[in-house]
Nucleic acid binder design. Structure first.
Lengths: 214, 214
DNA sequence: GCTTTGATACCACAGTTTGCGGGATTGATG
DNA sequence: CATCAATCCCGCAAACTGTGGTATCAAAGC
């Protein structure tokens, strides 16, 4: 990125943050970089959105808790307007649900506010060079979300069947994909239901997903 | 971690890597840290697994491409033996599929071999302090995996219905959860099928997942 | 050695679901 | 004023689902 952006052609950054102290802090921090230019600072997502044509940012730094529409929705709307704007969340929240919602909405990075201040500058650079800057605890949450629970009561085969069930396939289709009889699949599913103490596909998938068994 | 591990009570690391040059390079690199101790180096996952009781690692550094059982399976087996060993993948592969398989199998971090050498030491420290060290491109892939495709042909409501369908629920259950009539759900699904040009639940879910519309 | 578990397969049955063929109405959004 | 989204309605044949049994064989555990 060092060669793409310069003092004459700076990386355009906007900040959306309701706390004036933090907002100004971020602005002065980022402005110290020669190749950065803060082209807008806003108190709400609405103001930020309304001024996009003017601020024309490469990167939007956004808080999650905001008056009016929240940061998550703010990310969605900015992304919908122009998908190539990179969104960086900077917030005090490190609750699972918010992190994943923000990432699903289109955040390219997620920092918590207890970072050392120079981290913000690094994160912006990382973001525009194709990285995904995250605080350590956030990165861990994200990676953990991929991991299965090792104490599943289901056998390997049963897990396989349940996974196929999760794709919406019928017993007969599952059977042919596993090269076994449909009746075998039915047996597996009966056993799955009894192990999970459920009585339907939906309940089984629900429970297995919650427990990270599939 | 600085206060948890020391010269007398070092962090125990093992390396599983088939290339002798890299293996030795990693070993000497890590051994320079006072609080680290390399308690085993292996050419294959089998050797690593067989020696776990002796090497008793806190961290296992593992390559993906290995003779015999591969790194992915290796991660699974180590994790099955003792879930609190942290697994760090270091490999040349940065193919989507392998990255996600490794993370699902239990990798806590994933580095590509083109990193600066000091990064390895930092990554190990990050891993044992609850982080998830990743190369920038890997972090991006991981974050991107959460993001939906913004150009979905489906309306918001249709997407909602399809998501519920993905949980294995029947039309009637979906209807009651959305507080609409079952016939409405059927209509939505008919429209979804026609937009996606499919003729069944399984096909619709398959296509929508592939295109990241749900 | 004996028991348990996992994977395989079969039968029958009632009830539900699914996909598709037709519609229709209302309210936005352009 | 046309189109799309969301809502609702009917009917039907075919397929699917959940549950009740039963059974064999191999592997793993005690």
């Amino acid at each position: 990125m060092e060669n793409k952006y310069s003092k004459l052609n700076p990386l355009r950054i906007v900040i959306t943050e309701d706390d004036a102290v933090i907002r100004d802090g971020f602005k002065s921090l980022l402005s110290q970089e020669e190749s950065f230019m803060v082209t807008g600072t806003y108190r709400t997502a609405e103001e930020c959105l309304a001024d996009l044509d003017n601020s024309r940012p490469d990167v939007v730094i956004m808080d999650i808790e905001l008056p009016g529409i929240d940061g998550i929705e703010g990310i969605s709307r900015v992304k919908k307007q122009s998908d190539n704007i990179q969104m960086l969340v900077v917030t005090v929240y490190e609750n699972d649900d918010l992190v994943f919602k923000a990432l699903c909405a289109g955040a390219g990075g997620y920092l918590t506010k207890n970072m050392p201040s120079h981290r913000l500058v690094d994160a912006v650079k990382e973001l525009v060079t194709g990285g995904a800057p995250m605080s350590t605890n956030i990165a861990r949450m994200v990676v953990a979300s991929f991991q299965r629970n090792l104490n599943s009561p289901l056998s390997a085969r049963e897990t396989e069947v349940l996974n196929l069930l999760a794709t919406g396939k019928s017993y007969s289709v599952i059977a042919s994909e596993l090269y076994v009889d449909k009746e075998t699949v039915k047996s597996h599913i009966k056993n799955i239901y009894s192990k999970l103490e459920v009585h339907s596909k939906a309940e089984a998938l629900d429970k297995a997903k919650k427990e990270k068994w599939i």
